[in-house]
């Protein structure tokens, strides 16, 4: 065997895998930045209350647009020319969090679910037209959606404390619908062990909203003077 051949091969391979490794690291970093900044958007949306709705959402949307323009576009740049599936593990967490943030904003604004097609359409402008455009895949979208329900749960509870009962009720219905739909989809998903874990968390979220909602409906009931009879009187005495 010719050592030179081997050495040469070594170098060729080196170039390839080394490049891959560096790229992977950069993609991981991009993904991490997307995550952090998407989380900030979500945190911003949670500041919502009856009085500051418009203002909060406007800010959140601006922040989200910034995530798209700055961080998602960096990811797009890093990925260019690569098989999106090869590095999926590296960027999937960030994309999921981005989906979570985007759908969360949309729901708070319009009460509807932001579709995958809509998200992907919104990404087209930041893609380099000469390359295959980055398109978020179904799996990451669904994984992001699963996390969305956790945020909606928190939102519902804070809305209840704030007295916006109907809104909470609406959230609750929405979450239940998503949960049901996902129940049917999970078994068809690629590697679904993550998703299965998320489904359990989601069920807990659903149950939590239900409980908060329940105690609330009893409490509203209680606060009606006609009904809360002796108990309330006792307290007032």
């Amino acid at each position: 065997m010719d050592l030179q051949v081997l050495r040469w091969m070594g170098e060729a391979v080196e170039r390839t895998t080394q490049g891959q490794n560096d790229k992977r690291e950069r993609v991981v970093k991009a993904s991490r930045d997307i995550t952090i900044n998407s989380k900030k958007v979500i945190f911003q949306v949670h500041r919502i209350s009856k009085s500051n709705r418009e203002e909060v959402l406007e800010k959140a949307e601006k922040d989200l647009a910034a995530v798209t323009d700055q961080y998602i576009s960096r990811l797009v740049k890093e990925l260019q020319g690569t098989d999106f599936w090869k590095l999926r593990r590296a960027y999937s967490p960030g994309v999921q969090e981005y989906v979570e943030a985007a759908t969360f904003c949309k729901f708070c604004k319009t009460g509807t679910l932001l579709n995958l097609a809509e998200i992907n359409a919104s990404l087209l402008p930041i893609n380099d037209p000469s390359l295959e455009p980055l398109q978020i895949n179904v799996l990451d979208y669904l994984l992001g959606l699963a996390d969305l329900t956790g945020e909606l749960m928190r939102l519902a509870i804070s809305r209840i404390s704030d007295g916006e009962l109907e809104y909470a009720e609406k959230i609750c219905r929405f979450v239940r619908d998503i949960y049901r739909e996902l129940t049917l989809l999970v078994p068809d998903m690629d590697e679904n062990s993550d998703m299965k874990k998320k489904m359990e968390t989601m069920l807990q979220s659903v149950v939590k909203i239900e409980n908060a909602d329940a105690s609330n409906s009893w409490l509203t009931f209680l606060s009606k003077p006609s009904v809360c009879s002796s108990l309330q009187e006792q307290r007032l005495a």
Partner: peptide
């Protein structure tokens, strides 16, 4: 030789 070639890879 094979081991040496691999060693070059990071």
């Amino acid at each position: 030789d094979l081991h040496a070639a691999f060693q070059m890879l990071n």
